[in-house]
Design a protein around this nucleic acid. Structure first.
Lengths: 200, 200
DNA sequence: TTTGATTTTCAGAAATTCTTGAAATTACCG
DNA sequence: CGGTAATTTCAAGAATTTCTGAAAATCAAA
């Protein structure tokens, strides 16, 4: 490996974390190199920096493209493929969220919905099915929120995040404005805004 | 494997997903069995249902305990260990979020903070360091939001989730109330609510 | 302390995933 | 068309992870 010390530490860390993030060590390191690179890199440059075989890098780049985490670029008068990570870290978060949802959540939700439809044939199945339905409903609420929030512009999203739990205060204000407009603060805020409140 | 068909499908699915979720197939299947079980199970019951070796189940249960995903229980006049999943699916989500943050995010944030402190020694390192700082700040905003929200009661959390992106409307109301009180709606709402806005 | 039930550990077997070099394919240029 | 540069595929070896049975450790009752 042929990298400045600071970058090497970063790259090795991403490699180690790779397995926890659902990618391999190699893929993690390739991504790390691309993330900090000041300009797009081609496969041979990555090979040289990391000391991996050409084919290994090719596989790794293919996987990163499948994750939408790197983009293919072309430089004038050079027919090699160059790769780069998106510049905007928020864009990267959006991609990660989308891909992880697709791989880690959607398939399970599909199975849970199917099983929730079936006719249970025994007492164990009746109980199991109600557990599966609970899980499916929880996932639906979570992914429904995600589908809404992912459409926010980055600036709004950052505003929302920095607000944190204090959004609760605002919800209380909203309760007063919409449910009891102008009325003096009712004992506590309205808590009837249950899931059914969501636009179908 | 000795299970009713509906439960078998569920268990096999959790096994397949296990590797995507950062646990092994065995651990995924053990958890699935416990999740749908109407009462706590002991290790031998799990062996029998799944056809795994006793030691494999023992390892799997140890890992699930390390994840805080199962609890150890004891039944009267029985010295075997029984295991159960928490009843409340929201509790499970909280545990998962906490553990995944601990394993997948915190170590990286630590490394990024360390590297952001160092003195860069080359132009590549200067650029790399600014990328790392961007990433660290993004993660800090995300985890800060999470630390706030995780303290909400489940009911409030569900309310927040079901509100989805419509919270943006409320943010706009808040902007008008706090920043430009009584003023006619300014071109676009206040966007200065940057991270610095967060209570230290 | 002994006994027997239960759980844990651990070394090696089995299975899976990763990595590589060589060969095949693709894409472009003259 | 060749010819060449670049990329991808693939089979097999390497490395890692998972799984098992046997042995060791733990624990409570007698």
């Amino acid at each position: 490996m042929n990298l400045p010390p600071m970058i090497q530490t970063f790259v090795l860390h991403f490699g180690e974390m790779g397995s926890r993030w659902g990618i391999s060590r190699t893929v993690g390191q390739i991504y790390a190199v691309l993330f900090v690179a000041p300009q797009p890199l081609n496969a041979d440059q990555i090979c040289e920096q990391l000391g991996f075989s050409r084919s290994n890098v090719s596989m790794g780049l293919k996987e990163l493209q499948a994750w939408n985490l790197v983009r293919l670029r072309h430089l004038p008068d050079d027919r090699r493929d160059y790769f780069e990570s998106p510049d905007d870290v928020w864009e990267i978060v959006r991609i990660l969220a989308e891909e992880r949802k697709k791989r880690e959540i959607d398939p399970t939700l599909t199975v849970l919905r199917e099983l929730s439809m079936q006719q249970p044939a025994s007492p164990e199945e009746i109980h199991a099915q109600s557990r599966m339905t609970e899980m499916a409903e929880m996932i639906e609420l979570l992914t429904g929120w995600y589908e809404d929030v992912k459409r926010l512009e980055t600036e709004r999203l950052a505003q929302l995040l920095s607000l944190g739990a204090r959004v609760q205060k605002i919800l209380e204000i909203k309760d007063r404005l919409t449910v009891f407009p102008g009325r003096p603060r009712p004992g506590s805020a309205n808590t009837n805004a249950a899931p059914s409140d969501r636009k179908a």
